[in-house]
Design a protein around this nucleic acid. Structure first.
Lengths: 211, 211
DNA sequence: CTGTATACGTACCGATCGGTACGCCCGTCA
DNA sequence: TGACGGGCGTACCGATCGGTACGTATACAG
């Protein structure tokens, strides 16, 4: 009879936050890292489960398909994005311009480090152009909401044409995401806060709206 | 002896522009369409050759790998991009602001139609984060050159801080590419020309540069 | 008619893809 | 102690991936 202690221990140490003991949690965390860093299509389920130290059936017991796992990853990403966004909002109550600038400054800082990979939601939408793909659905919903919030903040700021300013800010943000991963350290994303501030200033209708 | 006319004719009709007779040309054209519309990773070589009406060895006689085919596709895309860009430049000699606005207006128009898929070069860089991937190399070179040109135009315009204006314009352009494919018809890319014009106006140093 | 180069297709390779049928282990509660 | 159910792994599936060894048809030169 083989010694029980020699058998590879199945139960992991009591749930450190770094290495969750539940298979589904380790899968979520590993998928998050790999999907974000390498892209969704580039990562196979085999790689996810082996890096997570689990097996494929554990994945498919919690997620009906790889596409659904990708959607779950993006839902997590979405939640974290809004936590991050609302943090900037909460830091400057009632001052939308300062809220926005804090968000943009932190975004620009992140977008300038090497190996920056942009926004996971934007990247997923680029990878999955099919309108009914579950991952794309999550990405589109996030971006629609972001647009809504930005236009709302432009309105609060008293912009002459809040829709134009809000959309302009969205263009700058998306531009920072992709050019951050295109250019790396000295990239154009560094100009984001200054450019956005200049655009806001020019949109506040102190001089009559050009028409 | 079998009738020669019954044998499936190998030679295609004499080189219509729509359906080139040479296998390599049909592959290039088909790869271009599929890679752009669906993404590079999403398209297999089998699909390319079957849609092109040729076979895999014909592909691998002209391209050493799928990655090299992707790079060739992007080189074609790059050439077409500059043709398009220089067209706007040539339309308004010596007037960089008008050149830019024409380019941006046409870009905005294209980015607002349904099923728009953005910039093939940007998309490829999102799909291939590895720095040494041949496709990404082409994309990065294109973007670096675009940045150079935009900063040059900002200088010509007499901007107080041409690097900031040039980078701001690049952010807006990249933002239009990705948000065009995220939002479809009524998307924020429609605000591109107006926002860019406002940013240019605010960057021309008529009022003292904020410091 | 023959040699040769060009241009292409047939048929196949091992590897990896996403996904699943099935069984074992272990803590819980009777 | 025994029945049970949740939680997980072993071993496998057909399909598709990128890539290739080898044969064949045709145009042209001699």
């Amino acid at each position: 009879m083989p010694d029980k202690a020699n058998v590879k221990s199945r139960r992991a140490p009591p749930a450190s936050a770094e290495r969750p003991t539940r298979a589904v949690d380790r899968i979520r965390q590993t998928a998050r890292e790999l999907f974000y860093r390498e892209g969704i299509r580039a990562v196979g389920v085999e790689e996810i489960v082996s890096r997570a130290g689990v097996t494929k059936p554990s994945l498919y017991r919690s997620f009906s398909s790889k596409d659904e796992l990708a959607a779950a990853y993006l839902r997590d990403y979405d939640a974290e994005f809004w936590r991050y966004f609302d943090e900037a909002v909460a830091a400057h109550p009632g001052k939308p311009r300062a809220q926005l600038l804090q968000f943009l400054e932190r975004l620009a800082r992140r977008a300038l480090v090497a190996n920056y990979r942009g926004c996971g939601l934007t990247n997923a939408a680029v990878e999955y152009p099919e309108a009914d793909h579950p991952a794309r659905r999550v990405a589109e919903a996030n971006k629609r909401e972001l647009r809504r919030r930005l236009v709302g903040m432009a309105t609060e700021m008293g912009a002459a044409a809040p829709a134009v300013l809000g959309d302009g800010l969205l263009l700058l943000i998306e531009g920072a995401y992709v050019s951050g991963q295109l250019f790396g350290e000295g990239g154009p994303a560094g100009a984001l806060p200054e450019v956005a501030d200049r655009l806001i200033e020019a949109s506040l209708g102190r001089k009559p709206a050009r028409r």
